[in-house]
Protein backbone atom coordinates (compact mmCIF):
# COMPACT_ATOMS: atom_id res chain seq x y z
CA UNK A 1 0.00 0.00 0.00
CA UNK A 2 2.81 2.37 0.81
CA UNK A 3 4.26 1.82 -2.62
CA UNK A 4 0.94 2.67 -4.13
CA UNK A 5 0.76 5.98 -2.28
CA UNK A 6 4.26 6.78 -3.30
CA UNK A 7 3.40 6.11 -6.93
CA UNK A 8 0.38 8.44 -6.71
CA UNK A 9 2.67 11.15 -5.36
CA UNK A 10 5.17 10.59 -8.17
CA UNK A 11 2.36 10.69 -10.72
CA UNK A 12 1.14 14.01 -9.38
CA UNK A 13 4.67 15.42 -9.49
CA UNK A 14 5.08 14.27 -13.10
CA UNK A 15 1.72 15.63 -14.27
CA UNK A 16 2.10 18.98 -12.54
CA UNK A 17 5.83 19.25 -13.19
CA UNK A 18 5.21 18.86 -16.89
CA UNK A 19 2.79 21.76 -16.57
CA UNK A 20 4.91 23.90 -14.24
CA UNK A 21 8.12 23.90 -16.29
CA UNK A 22 6.53 25.40 -19.42
CA UNK A 23 4.62 27.88 -17.26
CA UNK A 24 7.93 29.04 -15.85
CA UNK A 25 9.38 29.10 -19.39
CA UNK A 26 6.45 31.22 -20.54
CA UNK A 27 7.18 33.70 -17.78
CA UNK A 28 10.94 33.64 -18.40
CA UNK A 29 10.44 33.91 -22.18
CA UNK A 30 12.22 30.64 -22.98
CA UNK A 31 10.04 29.38 -25.85
CA UNK A 32 12.31 26.47 -26.62
CA UNK A 33 11.80 24.95 -23.19
CA UNK A 34 8.07 24.94 -23.90
CA UNK A 35 8.69 23.19 -27.23
CA UNK A 36 10.80 20.62 -25.44
CA UNK A 37 8.05 19.94 -22.92
CA UNK A 38 5.56 19.61 -25.78
CA UNK A 39 7.85 17.02 -27.33
CA UNK A 40 7.94 15.14 -24.03
CA UNK A 41 4.14 15.21 -23.81
CA UNK A 42 3.70 13.96 -27.38
CA UNK A 43 6.25 11.16 -27.05
CA UNK A 44 4.70 10.22 -23.71
CA UNK A 45 1.29 9.99 -25.38
CA UNK A 46 2.76 7.67 -28.02
CA UNK A 47 4.22 5.65 -25.17
CA UNK A 48 0.84 5.51 -23.41
CA UNK A 49 -0.55 3.96 -26.59
CA UNK A 50 2.20 1.36 -26.78
CA UNK A 51 1.85 0.72 -23.04
CA UNK A 52 -1.66 -0.66 -23.61
CA UNK A 53 -0.31 -3.36 -25.93
CA UNK A 54 3.00 -3.89 -24.20
CA UNK A 55 2.40 -3.12 -20.56
CA UNK A 56 -1.11 -4.44 -20.11
CA UNK A 57 -1.29 -6.99 -22.90
CA UNK A 58 2.31 -8.21 -22.89
CA UNK A 59 2.43 -7.80 -26.68
CA UNK A 60 5.98 -6.67 -27.42
CA UNK A 61 5.47 -4.62 -30.57
CA UNK A 62 8.60 -3.47 -32.34
CA UNK A 63 6.49 -1.84 -35.03
CA UNK A 64 4.65 1.02 -33.35
CA UNK A 65 6.59 3.50 -35.46
CA UNK A 66 4.21 2.50 -38.26
CA UNK A 67 1.19 3.83 -36.34
CA UNK A 68 3.06 6.88 -35.10
CA UNK A 69 4.12 7.74 -38.65
CA UNK A 70 0.70 7.04 -40.14
CA UNK A 71 -0.84 9.51 -37.69
CA UNK A 72 1.75 12.02 -38.81
CA UNK A 73 0.96 11.39 -42.46
CA UNK A 74 -2.77 11.86 -41.84
CA UNK A 75 -2.04 15.30 -40.37
CA UNK A 76 0.31 16.18 -43.24
CA UNK A 77 -1.88 14.86 -46.04
CA UNK A 78 -5.14 16.40 -44.78
CA UNK A 79 -3.38 19.75 -44.27
CA UNK A 80 -1.91 19.60 -47.76
CA UNK A 81 -5.30 18.91 -49.30
CA UNK A 82 -6.86 21.67 -47.23
CA UNK A 83 -4.38 24.21 -48.55
CA UNK A 84 -4.52 23.01 -52.17
CA UNK A 85 -8.29 22.57 -52.14
CA UNK A 86 -8.00 19.24 -53.96
CA UNK A 87 -10.29 16.55 -52.54
CA UNK A 88 -8.90 13.30 -51.16
CA UNK A 89 -10.96 10.16 -51.81
CA UNK A 90 -13.83 12.48 -52.70
CA UNK A 91 -13.67 14.34 -49.38
CA UNK A 92 -12.13 17.73 -48.65
CA UNK A 93 -8.88 18.02 -46.66
CA UNK A 94 -8.82 19.74 -43.31
CA UNK A 95 -6.56 21.89 -41.20
CA UNK A 96 -8.66 21.46 -38.05
CA UNK A 97 -7.04 19.34 -35.35
CA UNK A 98 -10.47 18.24 -34.18
CA UNK A 99 -11.05 16.68 -37.61
CA UNK A 100 -7.51 15.38 -38.07
CA UNK A 101 -7.26 13.59 -34.73
CA UNK A 102 -10.18 11.18 -35.20
CA UNK A 103 -9.06 10.45 -38.75
CA UNK A 104 -5.50 9.78 -37.57
CA UNK A 105 -6.80 7.44 -34.87
CA UNK A 106 -9.07 5.69 -37.32
CA UNK A 107 -6.35 5.15 -39.92
CA UNK A 108 -3.68 4.09 -37.42
CA UNK A 109 -6.18 1.90 -35.55
CA UNK A 110 -7.34 0.19 -38.73
CA UNK A 111 -3.81 -0.56 -39.87
CA UNK A 112 -2.99 -1.76 -36.35
CA UNK A 113 -5.98 -4.07 -36.49
CA UNK A 114 -4.81 -5.49 -39.82
CA UNK A 115 -1.21 -5.98 -38.66
CA UNK A 116 -2.44 -7.26 -35.31
CA UNK A 117 -4.77 -9.79 -36.93
CA UNK A 118 -1.81 -11.28 -38.79
CA UNK A 119 0.75 -10.97 -36.00
CA UNK A 120 -1.50 -12.31 -33.24
CA UNK A 121 -1.68 -15.62 -35.01
CA UNK A 122 1.69 -16.12 -33.36
CA UNK A 123 3.19 -15.13 -30.03
CA UNK A 124 6.39 -14.12 -28.30
CA UNK A 125 9.45 -13.75 -30.41
CA UNK A 126 7.50 -14.22 -33.66
CA UNK A 127 5.32 -11.28 -32.71
CA UNK A 128 8.32 -8.99 -32.24
CA UNK A 129 9.81 -9.87 -35.59
CA UNK A 130 6.55 -9.67 -37.50
CA UNK A 131 5.53 -6.28 -36.16
CA UNK A 132 9.02 -4.99 -37.01
CA UNK A 133 8.83 -6.40 -40.52
CA UNK A 134 5.38 -4.97 -41.26
CA UNK A 135 6.39 -1.55 -39.95
CA UNK A 136 9.38 -1.69 -42.26
CA UNK A 137 7.06 -2.48 -45.16
CA UNK A 138 5.03 0.66 -44.43
CA UNK A 139 8.31 2.59 -44.23
CA UNK A 140 9.54 1.36 -47.61
CA UNK A 141 6.19 2.17 -49.14
CA UNK A 142 6.28 5.74 -47.79
CA UNK A 143 9.84 6.23 -49.04
CA UNK A 144 9.17 5.04 -52.54
CA UNK A 145 5.64 6.36 -53.13
CA UNK A 146 6.16 9.81 -54.61
CA UNK A 147 2.66 11.30 -54.25
CA UNK A 148 3.23 12.66 -50.72
CA UNK A 149 6.89 13.56 -50.87
CA UNK A 150 8.46 10.11 -50.55
CA UNK A 151 11.73 10.30 -48.68
CA UNK A 152 11.51 14.11 -48.69
CA UNK A 153 8.48 13.99 -46.43
CA UNK A 154 5.61 16.43 -46.26
CA UNK A 155 5.92 19.92 -44.76
CA UNK A 156 3.11 21.54 -42.78
CA UNK A 157 3.84 25.22 -43.28
CA UNK A 158 1.16 26.46 -40.92
CA UNK A 159 0.23 24.25 -38.00
CA UNK A 160 -3.26 22.80 -38.02
CA UNK A 161 -5.79 24.76 -35.99
CA UNK A 162 -7.53 24.27 -32.70
CA UNK A 163 -10.58 26.43 -31.92
CA UNK A 164 -9.78 29.34 -29.64
CA UNK A 165 -6.01 28.83 -29.66
CA UNK A 166 -3.13 29.97 -31.83
CA UNK A 167 -1.22 26.73 -32.33
CA UNK A 168 1.74 28.55 -33.82
CA UNK A 169 2.46 29.83 -30.30
CA UNK A 170 4.50 27.25 -28.32
CA UNK A 171 2.42 27.59 -25.16
CA UNK A 172 -0.88 27.02 -26.97
CA UNK A 173 0.39 23.89 -28.66
CA UNK A 174 1.75 22.67 -25.35
CA UNK A 175 -1.63 23.07 -23.66
CA UNK A 176 -3.26 21.03 -26.42
CA UNK A 177 -0.63 18.29 -26.13
CA UNK A 178 -0.70 18.19 -22.35
CA UNK A 179 -4.49 17.95 -22.39
CA UNK A 180 -4.41 15.07 -24.84
CA UNK A 181 -1.70 13.33 -22.83
CA UNK A 182 -3.81 13.56 -19.67
CA UNK A 183 -6.82 12.27 -21.59
CA UNK A 184 -4.72 9.39 -22.93
CA UNK A 185 -3.48 8.57 -19.46
CA UNK A 186 -7.08 8.68 -18.24
CA UNK A 187 -8.12 6.19 -20.90
CA UNK A 188 -5.20 3.96 -19.95
CA UNK A 189 -6.12 4.04 -16.27
CA UNK A 190 -9.77 3.33 -17.12
CA UNK A 191 -8.83 0.34 -19.24
CA UNK A 192 -6.57 -0.99 -16.54
CA UNK A 193 -9.37 -0.87 -14.02
CA UNK A 194 -12.01 -2.28 -16.37
CA UNK A 195 -13.12 -5.85 -17.03
CA UNK A 196 -11.55 -5.55 -20.46
CA UNK A 197 -8.24 -4.62 -18.85
CA UNK A 198 -8.51 -7.46 -16.37
CA UNK A 199 -9.09 -9.89 -19.23
CA UNK A 200 -6.13 -8.45 -21.11
CA UNK A 201 -3.83 -8.86 -18.11
CA UNK A 202 -5.15 -12.33 -17.41
CA UNK A 203 -4.26 -13.33 -20.98
CA UNK A 204 -0.79 -11.90 -20.54
CA UNK A 205 -0.22 -13.95 -17.43
CA UNK A 206 -1.79 -17.17 -18.62
CA UNK A 207 -3.53 -17.37 -21.99
CA UNK A 208 -4.71 -20.94 -21.51
CA UNK A 209 -6.38 -20.28 -18.19
CA UNK A 210 -7.99 -17.14 -19.59
CA UNK A 211 -9.36 -19.13 -22.50
CA UNK A 212 -10.68 -21.76 -20.14
CA UNK A 213 -12.81 -19.19 -18.32
CA UNK A 214 -14.32 -18.10 -21.59
CA UNK A 215 -12.14 -15.13 -22.58
CA UNK A 216 -11.19 -15.11 -26.25
CA UNK A 217 -7.49 -14.17 -26.20
CA UNK A 218 -7.44 -13.24 -29.88
CA UNK A 219 -10.40 -10.85 -29.75
CA UNK A 220 -9.31 -9.08 -26.57
CA UNK A 221 -5.71 -8.74 -27.69
CA UNK A 222 -6.70 -7.54 -31.15
CA UNK A 223 -8.97 -4.85 -29.71
CA UNK A 224 -6.22 -3.73 -27.34
CA UNK A 225 -3.66 -3.68 -30.14
CA UNK A 226 -5.91 -1.60 -32.40
CA UNK A 227 -6.62 0.88 -29.60
CA UNK A 228 -2.93 0.99 -28.80
CA UNK A 229 -2.13 1.79 -32.44
CA UNK A 230 -4.86 4.45 -32.56
CA UNK A 231 -3.49 6.34 -29.54
CA UNK A 232 0.06 6.17 -30.88
CA UNK A 233 -1.33 7.44 -34.20
CA UNK A 234 -2.92 10.39 -32.42
CA UNK A 235 0.47 11.22 -30.93
CA UNK A 236 1.98 10.99 -34.40
CA UNK A 237 -0.51 13.57 -35.70
CA UNK A 238 0.51 15.91 -32.88
CA UNK A 239 4.20 15.29 -33.54
CA UNK A 240 3.73 16.25 -37.19
CA UNK A 241 2.21 19.54 -36.07
CA UNK A 242 4.97 20.10 -33.54
CA UNK A 243 7.70 19.51 -36.13
CA UNK A 244 5.60 21.11 -38.86
CA UNK A 245 6.75 18.13 -40.86
CA UNK A 246 5.99 14.48 -41.56
CA UNK A 247 8.60 12.13 -42.90
CA UNK A 248 9.29 8.44 -43.37
CA UNK A 249 11.79 8.58 -40.51
CA UNK A 250 8.77 8.70 -38.18
CA UNK A 251 7.97 5.24 -39.58
CA UNK A 252 11.46 3.76 -39.38
CA UNK A 253 12.53 1.07 -36.91
CA UNK A 254 14.64 3.34 -34.63
CA UNK A 255 11.40 5.15 -33.76
CA UNK A 256 9.86 1.84 -32.65
CA UNK A 257 12.91 1.24 -30.51
CA UNK A 258 12.61 4.71 -29.00
CA UNK A 259 9.00 4.10 -27.99
CA UNK A 260 9.95 0.85 -26.25
CA UNK A 261 12.82 2.64 -24.54
CA UNK A 262 10.41 5.31 -23.27
CA UNK A 263 8.18 2.70 -21.69
CA UNK A 264 10.98 0.72 -20.11
CA UNK A 265 12.82 3.77 -18.78
CA UNK A 266 9.62 4.89 -17.07
CA UNK A 267 8.38 1.51 -15.94
CA UNK A 268 6.37 -1.05 -17.92
CA UNK A 269 2.62 -1.02 -17.31
CA UNK A 270 2.77 2.02 -15.03
CA UNK A 271 0.18 4.68 -15.68
CA UNK A 272 2.70 7.53 -15.71
CA UNK A 273 5.67 5.42 -16.86
CA UNK A 274 5.73 6.86 -20.37
CA UNK A 275 5.79 10.43 -19.03
CA UNK A 276 8.84 9.70 -16.90
CA UNK A 277 10.44 7.74 -19.74
CA UNK A 278 9.88 10.46 -22.35
CA UNK A 279 11.23 13.12 -19.99
CA UNK A 280 14.37 11.06 -19.35
CA UNK A 281 14.94 10.31 -23.05
CA UNK A 282 14.42 13.88 -24.26
CA UNK A 283 16.47 15.22 -21.37
CA UNK A 284 19.27 12.80 -22.17
CA UNK A 285 19.19 13.66 -25.86
CA UNK A 286 19.29 17.40 -25.27
CA UNK A 287 21.97 17.27 -22.59
CA UNK A 288 24.35 14.78 -24.15
CA UNK A 289 23.51 15.48 -27.81
CA UNK A 290 25.06 18.90 -27.39
CA UNK A 291 28.08 17.61 -25.51
CA UNK A 292 29.26 14.71 -27.62
CA UNK A 293 28.54 13.31 -31.05
CA UNK A 294 28.80 9.86 -29.50
CA UNK A 295 25.79 10.34 -27.23
CA UNK A 296 24.07 7.26 -28.62
CA UNK A 297 26.89 5.14 -27.20
CA UNK A 298 26.15 6.51 -23.75
CA UNK A 299 22.43 6.03 -24.25
CA UNK A 300 23.11 2.39 -25.10
CA UNK A 301 25.16 1.92 -21.95
CA UNK A 302 22.46 3.51 -19.81
CA UNK A 303 19.79 1.26 -21.34
CA UNK A 304 21.93 -1.78 -20.74
CA UNK A 305 22.33 -0.70 -17.12
CA UNK A 306 18.57 -0.32 -16.78
CA UNK A 307 17.89 -3.80 -18.15
CA UNK A 308 20.48 -5.45 -15.97
CA UNK A 309 20.10 -3.53 -12.74
CA UNK A 310 16.93 -1.41 -12.67
CA UNK A 311 14.24 -3.51 -14.23
CA UNK A 312 11.27 -1.51 -13.01
CA UNK A 313 12.43 1.72 -14.66
CA UNK A 314 12.36 5.06 -12.87
CA UNK A 315 8.96 4.54 -11.30
CA UNK A 316 10.06 1.09 -10.22
CA UNK A 317 13.04 2.62 -8.45
CA UNK A 318 10.96 5.24 -6.70
CA UNK A 319 7.72 3.43 -6.05
CA UNK A 320 8.95 -0.12 -5.59
CA UNK A 321 9.08 -3.14 -7.84
CA UNK A 322 5.61 -4.59 -7.71
CA UNK A 323 3.34 -3.52 -10.46
CA UNK A 324 -0.08 -2.12 -9.85
CA UNK A 325 -1.50 -4.32 -12.58
Amino acid sequence: MRNEHREYAVNAVLALGLLAVPLWALWANEPFTITLCTRIAVLALAGVGLNIALGLGGMVSFGHAAFFGLGGYVAGILAQHASSGAPILGLPGSNQMLVIWPVAMLVAGTVAAAIGALSLRTTGIFFIMITLAFAQMVYYFAVSWPAYGGEDGLPIYVRNRFPGLNTMRPWDLFVVSWGLLMAGIGVFALIRGSRFGAALMAIRQNPDRAASVGISPFGVQLAAFALSGAITGLAGALMADLSRFTSPSMLAWPMSGELIVIIILGGVGRVFGPVAGAAILVGFEVTFGGMTEHWKLWLGLVLLGVVLFARGGLLGLIAGRERLG
Partner: peptide, 11 residues
Amino acid sequence: RPEQAVQIADR
Protein backbone atom coordinates in the same frame (compact mmCIF):
# COMPACT_ATOMS: atom_id res chain seq x y z
CA ARG B 1 16.20 12.65 -39.03
CA PRO B 2 14.05 15.61 -40.11
CA GLU B 3 12.18 15.96 -36.79
CA GLN B 4 15.44 16.00 -34.90
CA ALA B 5 16.92 18.60 -37.24
CA VAL B 6 13.87 20.86 -36.80
CA GLN B 7 14.07 20.54 -33.05
CA ILE B 8 17.77 21.41 -33.00
CA ALA B 9 17.14 24.39 -35.29
CA ASP B 10 14.40 25.65 -32.97
CA ARG B 11 16.68 25.30 -29.98
